[in-house]
Structures are given as C-alpha cells and as structure tokens.
Nucleic acid binder design. Structure first.
Lengths: 144, 144
DNA sequence: GGCGCACATGCGCATATGCTCATATCATCA
DNA sequence: TGATGATATGAGCATATGCGCATGTGCGCC
C-alpha cells in the first residue's frame, strides 16, 4: 500500500472522518467540502465495496467470510477493506489468524439504505430483487 | 460523445432511471443492483459535478451561468452536464442560444444534503464553512 | 524453529476518468 | 447567407482505479 493507495486513502480519510485542517478559512473551503463529499460518495461508487459493506452491515466478519460472501478474491477484498478502514468506514480487529471487520461509520449504511430503497422503488422488474433490496436496506449497523 | 461516454452514460442511466431489464430474475440481480447503486454514487463522486449541482439546485441556469458559478471551463461543464442529463439527474431546455439546466431528480439533492450535513457536523474547523454547507443542504430542488 | 493458515502488500496491466484544445453544431439576426 | 453567440463534441493526455499474480507478514501450533 506504499505506492499508490496512500494519497487516495488520505483523501478518503478526510471524506469520512473529522477534518483536521483548522487553519483554512479561505474561499477555497467550499472546494474542500466538495472534495470531501465527493470522496465520501466515491467510497460507495464501487460494486465490490458495496458488496463488502453489505456482507458486514449486520455483523462483523472475517476476511475469508467476506470473500465467500462477496465472491471476490481475497486479494481484492483485502484491498478494499484496507481502503474502507483507512477511511474510517469499517473497524478492524485481529483475533488470532483471523481479522474481523465491521461497520464503524453507520452513516454509510444509512446512506446506502436510502439509495437502495429509491432504486428499488424504480426497479419494477422483479419482486425477488426488491425483496433483496429491502433486506439490504433494513439491516442495522453494528458499530465497531 | 460517441466515443467513450456512451457506455458510461448507459450505466448511469440505469443508476438513476427506471431499469428496463424485466427478464432478469437470476441471482445476478443483486449484482445488478450493486452496479446501479454504485453508478448512482459515482455521479456524485466528482467535485465538479457537485459544484454544478450546487449551482442549479435552487434554479435553472444556462451553461455559461454554471460556468461562471463553478469556475470550471465551458467544455468541462458541458461534458458533465451531458453526463448528468443522460443519467436523468438534470433537465435540459434550450431557449434560443442558451440551454438551461435544472435538477430533474430531487433525490440527488436530498442525498447530497444528508451527506453534507454529516460532513459539516464533523468539520469543526470553520464556522463560515459550516454555514455554506447548511446553505447548500437547505436548498430546495426545482424539478425540471 | 518450522509449518500451515489467514491476511496484507508489491507490482503490473487494462481500463476508466477528468480535463483541455480545437472545432463542430445550433440558434438568432442583419 | 454570413456573422455572432452559446453550447456540444472529437481527439488526446495524464492520472486514477479495479483487478490479479506473486509474495510478504502475522499468528498459532507442534
């Protein structure tokens, strides 16, 4: 993660955590806000990351459990989890061999919930689909 | 827009408009939903687009007005507006020389509102910043 | 200490994406 | 019809990003 995720993680940390730049009171603050908001949404703009969040939104899971639940590779899952953790969205706790991740920022789940409900409302194609969406939307968050 | 925005616009259209795939009742529907949700968030994951939406969230504006309000280039603004329009987020109306854009999908504004409020709550650095955010969040939408 | 399991990370690849320059297109007017 | 104003689009560039292969790292057990 030394090469190219570092700068990105830094931005995303700003998106989802308290911003520490308390010397900036110029007109560029709005730019800063848009960057922060954009970074926030960016974390949610990837299907794999949404899957991952979906798999841990109601309970903490180990990486291998998330891998099984998402159908993605261990490598890819680990990457995304690192990004989400850097951004403060997920919590991380090692337990022996296993590392467990859970939701740290419940705002993420609630935002996803809102969007999924809306998209479900628009997708009339399949009742099973809507059911899955509502299930997704109905899950509570588990603070880490 | 023939070369490379077409495929992307297609996905984003799916994100923000009614999905017409009514033959798909397989287990891949969840993948479809995540893709749609991700596309939805993706539209909001760019600062320039957020600026643009900010500039039209309380009234329709011409492209040049948006260009002036956002400080971005006409080219870039036009591009982003095309994307947002393709996705059904903004409305478009030509009036003589000028083309006016406004919010077509108020869900976008309300989602932005929620996120900005949350981010504002976390940014303790500057009172002017928070004020701008609340102003942004407080704007009503103007359906196109 | 070696081994195995679970997870993280270096590196590379293919594609996506934001942006700009130049120019095309649309609408209006004399 | 040509000129002008406003906007859209072709093409190219630099950078970002998702992913996988290979391997490094952490932990527990014998």
């Amino acid at each position: 993660m030394q090469r190219r995720r570092k700068g990105e993680a830094s931005e995303h940390k700003g998106a989802a955590q308290e911003h520490g730049a308390d010397g900036a009171t110029t007109g560029d603050e709005l730019a800063e806000v848009f960057a922060a908001v954009a970074g926030y949404f960016h974390l949610l703009s990837d299907p794999t990351r949404l899957r991952i969040l979906h798999s841990i939104c109601d309970k903490h899971r180990s990486v291998s459990a998330i891998v099984a639940a998402t159908g993605s590779t261990q490598t890819n899952v680990s990457r995304h989890l690192a990004l989400l953790h850097q951004a403060g969205v997920v919590s991380r706790r090692r337990d022996g061999h296993a590392v467990f991740y859970g939701i740290a920022d419940p705002e993420f789940v609630s935002i996803c919930r809102g969007v999924c409900i809306r998209i479900a409302g628009r997708i009339e194609a399949g009742a099973p689909l809507k059911r899955d969406l509502l299930e997704f939307a109905a899950h509570g968050s588990s603070p880490g």
